[in-house]
Amino acid sequence: MFKEYSILLTFICLTFLLATIVFILSYIFSVQKADAEKISAYECGFNPFDDARTTFDIRFYLVAILFLIFDLEVSFLYPWSVCIGYLNNQGFYVICTFLFILTIGFLYEWFKGALDWE
């Protein structure tokens, strides 16, 4: 059994060794001077001007949550599309029902104005 996995074990050992060598060489040969520009906070190319704990508009959170919901739901389509040839008609009708419910939810959000930025 070791013979079957020896190539994989060799590959893992070589990649670990190569990564370690590159890390050590980059640490040795890089410039280690920390100046004010390197240690300053970076925020969109300019210095931060306000407290980080300020409140955000609720639309940022709403758009983020809507994106996550639709992104996760659409990610369910990939496994279905991979094995569509092996499914019977019931698998097709189930995904059609899923897409119909997804479309109804999208239209509801659209008509409620959740996607308008104003």
Score class of each variant (00 low, 15 high):
Phe2Asp: 12
Phe2Leu: 04
Tyr5Lys: 13
Ile7His: 09
Leu8Gly: 11
Ile12Ser: 11
Cys13Ser: 14
Leu17Trp: 08
Leu18Asp: 05
Thr20Asp: 04
Ser26Val: 07
Ser26Leu: 07
Tyr27Asp: 12
Tyr27Ser: 13
Tyr27Lys: 14
Phe29Asn: 12
Phe29Ser: 05
Ser30Leu: 06
Ser30Phe: 05
Ala34Lys: 04
Ala36Gly: 04
Ala36Asp: 10
Ile39Glu: 01
Ser40Met: 04
Tyr42His: 03
Glu43Ser: 11
Gly45Ala: 01
Asn47Trp: 06
Asp50Ser: 14
Asp50Thr: 15
Asp50Asn: 10
Ala52Thr: 01
Arg53Gln: 06
Thr54Asp: 13
Arg59Asp: 11
Tyr61Gln: 15
Tyr61Thr: 15
Leu62Gln: 15
Val63Lys: 12
Ala64Gly: 15
Leu66Ile: 08
Phe67Asn: 12
Phe76Val: 10
Tyr78Thr: 02
Pro79Asp: 02
Ile84Thr: 06
Gly85Cys: 01
Gly85Trp: 00
Tyr86Pro: 00
Leu87Arg: 03
Leu87Val: 00
Gln90Lys: 05
Gln90Asn: 04
Gly91Gln: 00
Tyr93Met: 09
Val94Leu: 11
Val94Thr: 12
Thr97Pro: 00
Leu99Trp: 02
Phe100Ile: 07
Leu102His: 05
Thr103Gln: 08
Thr103Pro: 00
Ile104Met: 08
Ile104Thr: 12
Gly105Gln: 08
Gly105Ile: 04
Phe106Met: 11
Leu107Ala: 12
Glu109Ser: 15
Trp110Phe: 14
Phe111Asp: 05
Phe111Arg: 10
Phe111Gly: 00
Gly113Lys: 07
Ala114Glu: 12
Leu115Gly: 06
Leu115Gln: 09
Trp117Ala: 08
Glu118Asp: 14
